[in-house]
């Protein structure tokens, strides 16, 4: 499962970021690292990009970038 699979309101715990290219590195620099809990807050009017919340950060990614971040679904998240 990855960040792009989340439904609005659901949370996931990051297990890893795939790849070692500059995109993977940028995602990690932005704090998307193993153990972080990320929630899908919403999407842009046309369905993309997605808006994620973790701690006090709000980050927007397209699905193409979001699939790089693997997660485990947090069960009781609505």
């Amino acid at each position: 499962m990855n960040l792009a699979d989340l439904k609005v309101g659901q949370r996931g715990t990051i297990t890893r970021v795939n790849g070692e290219d500059s995109l993977a590195l940028r995602l990690m620099e932005m704090g998307l690292i193993e153990g972080e809990v990320v929630r899908l807050l919403g999407t842009a009017p046309m369905g993309e990009p997605l808006e994620f919340a973790y701690r006090s950060s709000r980050l927007s990614l397209r699905k193409q970038e979001a699939v790089r971040v693997e997660i485990e679904l947090v069960k009781d998240s609505t």
Binding site: L23, R26, L27, M30, P49, E51, S56, S57, R58, L59, S60, L61, R62, Q64, E65
Partner: peptide
């Protein structure tokens, strides 16, 4: 290809 998109949304 489409370049990646990573953008912060500041409060």
């Amino acid at each position: 290809d489409m370049p990646p998109f990573v953008m912060e949304l500041p409060p």
